[in-house]
């Protein structure tokens, strides 16, 4: 469950105040708004990459407002993937597990499982250079899911993709959601993505959130 309660964030001149939203456990929330409306700022606050000046953020019942991003346990897929240029796809999927001192055998099993789920088995030994946009996003998604986070945050993950690839990524995202049951917050400005994926939609208009729940 993601609970954001009356948070205020400032990013330079830009200020957002009294923002609240709630995504119930296992649900898929989509946060929408125009470019520059502050969607990414809200996402960064949840991730802990940006300090909030007031309010509370709770993940699965735990207060994380002042917690370091490294211990919040959120899987993060940024807009352009932000893959690590020098690492193979396999290392991307294993990275979080190495950092968390998971044993070798479990890492191998997890990498195999993720690459099957995301259809990237044939890419495991390649580096990000030369991967297509869709492939990069699948690797970024795999890296974010690798440590089985309780929450997944996606920042316009499909915005740089062509229509056909976007279509397939949408299917993949809904499959992943069924398989993992991870609580997700997906930031986008695309209504189609919201229609296809969302359990609840949050519209950020003029610094205020309007919530609507889709059946």
């Amino acid at each position: 469950m993601i609970v954001v309660e009356n948070i205020s964030v400032s990013a330079g001149e830009f200020v957002l105040s009294n923002i609240s939203l709630k995504v119930s456990a296992g649900k898929y929330g989509v946060l929408m708004g125009k470019t520059g409306s502050g969607k990414t700022t809200i996402l960064e606050s949840i991730l802990g990459l940006r300090d909030v000046t007031s309010g509370h953020i709770r993940l699965a019942g735990e207060e994380v407002t002042d917690l370091n991003p490294a211990v919040r346990g959120i899987g993060y897929v940024p807009q352009d993937g932000a893959l690590f240029a020098h690492m193979s796809v396999r290392d991307h999927l294993a990275f979080a597990l190495y950092v968390r001192h998971v044993d070798r055998k479990t890492i191998d099993e997890r990498v195999h499982e993720l690459s099957e789920m995301l259809h990237i088995t044939s890419l495991l030994d390649r580096t990000p250079r030369g991967l297509s946009g869709g492939e990069k996003q699948r690797v970024a998604l795999g890296r974010a899911l690798s440590f089985q986070p309780r929450v997944l945050c996606l920042d316009e993950p499909l915005s740089a993709l062509d229509t056909e690839t976007r279509e397939r990524m949408c299917e993949l995202l809904s499959d992943v959601r069924k398989l993992t049951g991870v609580t997700t917050l997906h930031v986008t400005h695309n209504f189609d993505e919201a229609d296809r994926l969302a359990d609840c939609v949050f519209q950020l208009i003029n610094g205020k959130i309007e919530t609507s729940t889709t059946p």
Partner: peptide
């Protein structure tokens, strides 16, 4: 890209 470090931090890195 500083995003790469941010992602690494969210994955559990100091």
């Amino acid at each position: 890209d500083p995003r790469c470090e941010q992602v690494a931090v969210t994955l559990g890195c100091s």
